[in-house]
Design a protein around this nucleic acid. Structure first.
Length: 967
RNA sequence: UGGGGUGUAGCUCAGUGGGAGAGCGUCCGCUUCACACGCGGAAGGUCGUAGGUUCAACCCCUAUCACCCCAACCA
């Protein structure tokens, strides 16, 4: 008794608004009219360009994308942050992939009732953007007939103005492209790493880290980009294989006072070093050999005279030296090589900087001063050759560190920079992953993460650029002390000198410093905003594995340090999108597939679905345009399936059942036609598979389930079956129309996160749609929206599960397929109708055929299907072909006269017999194997026995059919 | 050098301890009144190689080869 009203109440909740929020003081406007697009007609074929833009505009304008700062009571929050693309960038396939995945999850959770925030925004991308503007400036200068204009010609302020303008002019490109892809961002919350709020967060973080002793300023060896004239971090230098030379140079061995040392032969002794960068010789402060290298033991404690400059430097021993490489003697240039720097520290060697920040040799380079590095190298080689100090030159392939952004070699040099002391930050970040508070998927990436985190080096965060967050440090010209503060200080923090004695640091911060704060800075941190409370920690981080160190690790470190909590609990890493040959897409190779071109040709949905279907974990995506075209075909298929529905409605509408299609179908499920029960059962099963795929982050499996069901069950079978019912009319027609509408509508909802545009367009065409609202919109009094976007995501309906119907339809399909196979193999054109008879050994089978007679006739294109006049094939004429079916056991008879050559059918039978024989011998092999019968599960043995019997029967029928044909 | 991944139909990829699937391509037959962006049928694979575990291996284990990626201090 008590269950009935409860159930009814539950149903009401489903149909009507979800959970009424007892809005505290917010006035509710309960009767606000629903927002809706003007009705549109479904005609022609799938042409995405006709509707995608207007749908997106409608969604955005009606506030469907908006998150609420606070979730409604009982409502979950769900948040994904976009990995901020470069503000002046263009959408590439990597963006398309990551955002397609994210948006699918977001839409799914939104439809599931969560308060979802898909946070949009862009990154100022320091070097990249500054370089663009500088390039444009240079071009301007050249076009005007003069020399290229540099940023220094403009000065910092003017240049920044230009860059902001450039940003304003270009930012809409990437955001427009993300809209084009259908991503449901809450655009009202769009953030930019250089906007006021985020800049404030950056300064706050800098100041706090400084006060905690985690940021320091120091003179260290760093990577220098001579193009952007800035320091870059270790990560921004990509070791790249380059062909070069290994020069062997002779250094004279001397005493500390410079007097020559004689070798074993009594002549002047030399020591040969091998180097790939001879110009660094100018900065050498030692030569090192391995302590146990016998070749050089005589030189321990001696000195070497630097060729060309004549400087006397010590010969020291260090186990770092590889005896096998080169000559086994290593020149040490502590100021221009990371390893040499370490060796220099161990042996207290002086630093001699010869490579200047401007890409030219410094004064310390003596006669080579002011030459650029390339010229200096050439001159030094020539001079060495001339003085007989160049022993030999070998070709040598080695790794050169190229700057990520500019592609030019990075020059290690010693410079005063700002650093983050990383170890104290890394420790908790390692622990968070070790303890499982953050999980990576695929899990193997955790190893990569640990590897890097355990060996992490201090992070050089200062950049000698102008575009970025200026280091919030001021130098006092009175006391020389540094004042670090969030806002420009009014006086020196040490001596109290006036602000005019203070000068702000010229440098800006590494772009990744600000993107590391993204998960909380976008939500208003350091303020304790409601949004921060609602959405932090974010739900999922989805990005490419190439920025694990750049971005993911830094977000974890910063998040833990500043919020005390992880920034996200799950990290999903997708693969790289390559071209169809598996090559990395690159402009120079010219193999870039532009997502915008693809969308222009096939629509956003086809591109999204392709990427999702191919995004299996742990494998690169080789994007194939054929595949995209295939999924465009899929969109068209859906389009036409819906059109088919409308055509049936046009033959005579059926009123929506009282209480909705679902409850009507549930109430009447016993009276439904088997095919209707079947499709409902299949639908709910597929629903389960799709939901599981989404929950387990296997979007490719979910996509596959959707595709297979839609095309191969709904379209290939169900719609074909439905035609029989529609022709029949009456009750059959009515229940089939209701079923078809229900299945279509549910399916569209189910696939909407994957293909938002086409599903919405089709859904809007359906007759029984109703506007819907989200819990938070409802609470805040926002109007309901006539859109698929806010409909409830379907759950499997177990009451539709029906294994009986599934078995029945499988048997029916078996009969139809046997007939189709007969037709196809015998090449009987579709236009020729076949008259068939059947022989059913059991009355139940006879009833089965009678029940589905019209279905079989329609789908196998038979002109007749009657009971055979004679039982068995004993009395049948010679031209009768027999088609045996095993489940249910029956024979189909077709008169070959006028249809097929007897020989053709004979051939078909022989082939069939061969196959059955093969199957049979395999099964018998198993069944005669004693260990199989003894050890395999009993059910399996029984199943195989059953199959054996089936096959024996089939074989007998085939053979007798064959003898009769040929006899 | 170390770590990870991949190897399945002509191509691009799914997949499971009980005789391997899809899309595209190929071949055959189709203006079947939703769809030629389609319908029906078919051909095509010793699931990289060699061992092992198991009644049973494409799947688990070991070795090996090939390709890819990542991290690296061989100047």
């Amino acid at each position: 008794m008590a269950t009935k009203p409860a159930r009814a109440a539950k149903k009401n909740v489903r149909k009507a608004a979800p959970q009424k929020a007892p809005a505290r003081s917010a006035p509710r406007r309960p009767s606000a009219p629903a927002l809706a697009l003007p009705p549109r007609e479904l005609t022609g074929s799938f042409e995405p360009a006709k509707f995608e833009a207007s749908l997106y505009e409608f969604w955005e304008k009606s506030g469907c994308f908006d998150a609420a700062d606070e979730s409604a009571p009982g409502q979950k929050s769900f948040c994904i942050m976009i990995p901020p693309p470069n503000v002046t960038g263009h959408l590439h396939m990597g963006h398309a992939l990551t955002n397609a995945i994210q948006d699918t999850l977001i839409r799914w959770r939104r439809m599931s009732g969560d308060n979802t925030l898909y946070q949009p925004g862009t990154d100022h991308a320091g070097i990249a953007t500054q370089l663009m503007v500088e390039r444009a400036l240079a071009d301007e200068g050249r076009k005007a007939g003069g020399r290229p204009i540099t940023r220094h010609d403009l000065g910092r302020e003017k240049f920044l103005e230009r860059t902001w303008k450039w940003k304003e002019d270009h930012a809409h490109i990437i955001t427009g492209q993300l809209r084009r892809l259908g991503c449901s961002f809450d655009w009202k919350r769009e953030r930019f790493t250089l906007d006021d709020g985020l800049s404030r967060a950056v300064r706050e973080v800098f100041v706090r880290l400084y006060k905690d002793g985690l940021i320091y300023r120091g003179e260290r060896i760093i990577n220098w980009d001579t193009v952007s004239q800035s320091a870059v971090s270790d990560l921004e230098v990509v070791p790249t294989e380059r062909k070069g030379f290994l020069w062997h140079i002779k250094y004279a061995v001397v005493e500390s006072d410079g007097t020559p040392v004689a070798g074993a032969d009594g002549k002047e002794a030399f020591l040969t070093i091998a180097t790939t960068r001879p110009e660094t010789l100018l900065g050498d402060t030692a030569v090192a050999v391995h302590p146990e290298d016998d070749r050089y033991s005589a030189f321990h404690g001696k000195h070497a005279k630097l060729p060309l400059l004549g400087r006397v430097i010590p010969i020291l021993t260090d186990t770092y030296v590889e005896r096998e490489f080169g000559t086994g003697a290593l020149k040490i240039t502590p100021a221009h090589d990371f390893n040499d720097y370490e060796i220099g520290k161990r042996h207290n060697l002086p630093l001699v900087s010869v490579m200047g920040k401007d890409g030219k040799i410094t004064a310390a380079g003596g006669p080579y001063a002011a030459m650029d590095f390339k010229t200096a190298r050439e001159r030094i080689i020539a001079d060495l050759k001339e003085s007989g100090r160049l022993e030999k030159t070998e070709e040598h392939t080695h790794k050169v560190g190229l700057c990520d952004r500019t592609g030019q070699p990075a020059e290690p040099l010693v410079s005063k920079q700002w650093f983050v002391k990383i170890e104290p930050l890394a420790k908790p970040a390692i622990a968070a992953v070790e303890s499982g508070k953050i999980e990576f998927s695929p899990k193997s990436w955790e190893k990569t993460y640990f590897e890097w985190m355990y060996n992490i080096r201090d992070w050089c965060i200062s950049r000698q650029l102008w575009w970025g967050h200026r280091v919030p440090a001021w130098y006092c010209s009175t006391c020389q002390e540094i004042t670090v503060a969030v806002e420009a200080p009014a006086a020196c923090g040490s001596c109290g000198a006036d602000a005019d004695r203070l000068k702000q640091d010229e440098d800006v911060l590494d772009t990744w410093f600000s993107s590391g704060l993204w998960p909380f800075s976008t939500l208003g941190w350091p303020e304790k905003t409601p949004a921060l409370n609602t959405f932090y920690p974010t739900s999922i981080l989805e990005t490419g594995f190439d920025i694990i160190f750049f971005w993911v690790a830094r977000m974890i470190m910063m998040g833990l340090h500043f919020t005390g909590d992880v920034p996200f609990r799950k990290v999903y890493l997708h693969a790289m999108v390559r071209d169809e040959k598996g090559e990395k897409m690159s402009k120079t190779k010219g193999n870039v597939i532009d997502p915008l071109d693809v969308m222009a040709e096939h629509g956003a949905d086809a591109l999204r679905f392709t990427l999702l279907a191919m995004a299996g974990q742990g494998r690169d995506i080789k994007l194939s345009l054929d595949r995209v075209a295939g999924y465009r075909g899929f969109c068209n298929k859906l389009w036409n399936a819906t059109k088919f529905f409308h055509l049936q409605v046009a033959q005579g509408a059926v009123a929506e059942p009282q209480g909705g299609a679902e409850s009507w179908l549930l109430k009447n499920k016993v009276e439904l036609l088997p095919v209707n029960r079947w499709v409902l059962s299949r639908l709910q099963q597929v629903n389960g598979a799709v939901t599981k795929g989404l929950e387990e982050f296997r979007l490719n499996e979910a996509a596959q389930a959707i595709y297979d069901f839609s095309w191969h069950e709904l379209c290939d079978w169900y719609i074909e079956f439905s035609k029989v019912s529609f022709k029949e009319g009456g009750e059959a027609r009515k229940q089939t129309l209701i079923t078809l509408h229900y299945v279509l509508e549910r399916l569209l909802r189910m696939m909407h996160p994957f293909m938002p545009f086409v599903t919405e367009e089709l859904w809007l065409s359906l007759p029984w749609k109703k506007p819907a609202n989200s819990p938070t919109r409802e609470r805040d009094g926002a109007p309901a929206v006539m859109s698929l976007m806010l409909q409830k995501y379907p759950q499997p309906e177990p009451r539709f599960a029906n294994s009986e119907a599934e078995k029945t339809v499988a048997a029916l399909q078996g009969i139809i397929e046997a007939l189709r196979n007969f037709r196809g193999e015998n090449r009987i054109p579709t236009s020729k109708e076949i008259a068939a008879c059947y022989v059913a050994p059991r009355t139940a089978t006879d009833a089965f055929v009678q029940l589905f007679r019209s279905d079989i006739m329609a789908m196998a294109r038979l002109s007749a299907l009657e009971k055979a006049p004679v039982n068995g094939n004993g009395g049948a004429p010679r031209t009768i072909a027999v088609i045996p079916v095993t489940n249910p056991a029956l024979e189909l008879h077709v008169d070959l006269k006028g249809l097929v050559d007897v020989e053709e059918e004979t051939k078909r039978l022989r082939k069939e017999i061969e196959r059955v024989q093969g199957d049979l011998s395999f099964i018998r092999g198993k069944l005669t194997n004693e260990s199989f019968v003894a050890k395999a599960p009993k059910e399996l043995v029984a199943k195989e026995k059953g199959r054996e019997n089936e096959l024996v029967g089939k074989l007998r029928e085939l053979e007798s059919a064959l003898t009769r044909l040929s006899g």
